[in-house]
């Protein structure tokens, strides 16, 4: 008889927001390095979104321990093969990157821009790490549903990237930037990400085989199919393909992507709890 770790809502939020932070930062850094000057808004939003999210992530992680000071015990050790150990370190390092990038995003001076681009390209690594290590972490436990699929990290990463892009798109929409060049590019990137995530998810379920039972046969099966597969992936992808010129529908699809991202973390974490 295996035991579950009783990771609950705080961890669901941590997985979800960490994914957005990593994805938004990555999108920002790509826009910064490969886009035009008109993509600056995308870059700045991405950097500025990532920073507070990383802070919240750290707070969630610490709060989940019960005795906050004990978080320091984690920093007395560095086990490079242990996702939980490097994850704590990577979160801190990524925090420094988001801080530097967010700060530099306010300066139009060429040296600041040049530095920001370089920092962003390195920071992508830590952002992606934050988005995906949580999947690798749970897929290296003794619990079959978490550990038999092999693609949990890859799936979390795709979802993190997609939700990060959706967050940027949504902020663009709310601040009147919808319809512009940056908006269209983010939307295009998100289309690819959603499509890719669907493929990874399908492959993941195949690899899981019978170990998917807690998900597909459990009390959260309806939420999984309805909330993630349909509402969180298929509908937004359809909206993007059919109506991506309509800004309002683009915003709707971004909201649905965020819902899907949350549902993914929720069903993965909670369907294992007894």
């Amino acid at each position: 008889m295996l035991k579950t770790p009783h990771w609950e809502m705080m961890i669901v939020w941590y997985f979800f927001l960490g994914g957005i932070a990593g994805g938004a930062y990555f999108t920002a850094a790509v826009a910064d390095a490969f886009g035009t000057a008109r993509d600056r808004a995308v870059a700045r939003i991405g950097y500025l979104v990532a920073l507070p999210l990383v802070v919240i992530c750290g707070a969630l992680l610490i709060a989940d321990l019960g005795v906050p000071m004990r978080f320091l015990n984690m920093l007395g050790t560095f086990k490079f093969w242990d996702p939980m150990s490097i994850g704590a370190w990577a979160l801190g390092v990524f925090g420094l990157f988001t801080f530097a990038s967010a700060l530099l995003s306010f300066s139009p001076s060429p040296p600041a821009v040049a530095w920001r681009r370089k920092i962003g390209l390195v920071g992508i690594f830590f952002g992606f790490f934050l988005a995906s290590y949580t999947g690798v972490l749970i897929s290296n436990t003794a619990l079959p549903f978490w550990s038999e699929g092999r693609l949990m990290g890859a799936l979390f990463l795709a979802s993190g990237a997609s939700t990060g892009m959706a967050t940027i798109a949504l902020i663009l929409f709310l601040t009147g930037g919808a319809g512009g060049e940056g908006w269209r590019k983010v939307k295009q990137a998100d289309r690819y990400a959603i499509g890719f995530e669907l493929c990874v998810l399908a492959l993941f379920l195949v690899l899981l085989g019978s170990a998917a039972a807690p998900l597909l046969g459990g009390r959260l099966a309806v939420l999984f199919w309805g909330g993630l597969v349909v509402v969180g992936l298929a509908v937004p992808l359809a909206l993007e393909l059919v109506a991506h010129r309509t800004a309002a529908l683009g915003a709707v699809s971004a909201v649905l992507v965020l819902v899907g991202g949350f549902v993914l973390r929720y069903v993965v974490v909670m369907s294992i709890q007894t």
């Binding site: 790509v30 886009g35 992606f128 995906s132 999947g135 990290g153 990463l157 990137a189």
Partner: peptide
């Protein structure tokens, strides 16, 4: 596999922002 996933997603984004 996560790194592979990052490469695919990264490529999609680069194509989008470059195209």
């Amino acid at each position: 596999l996560s790194i592979g996933s990052a490469l695919v997603v990264g490529l999609g984004a680069i194509v989008s922002f470059r195209s």
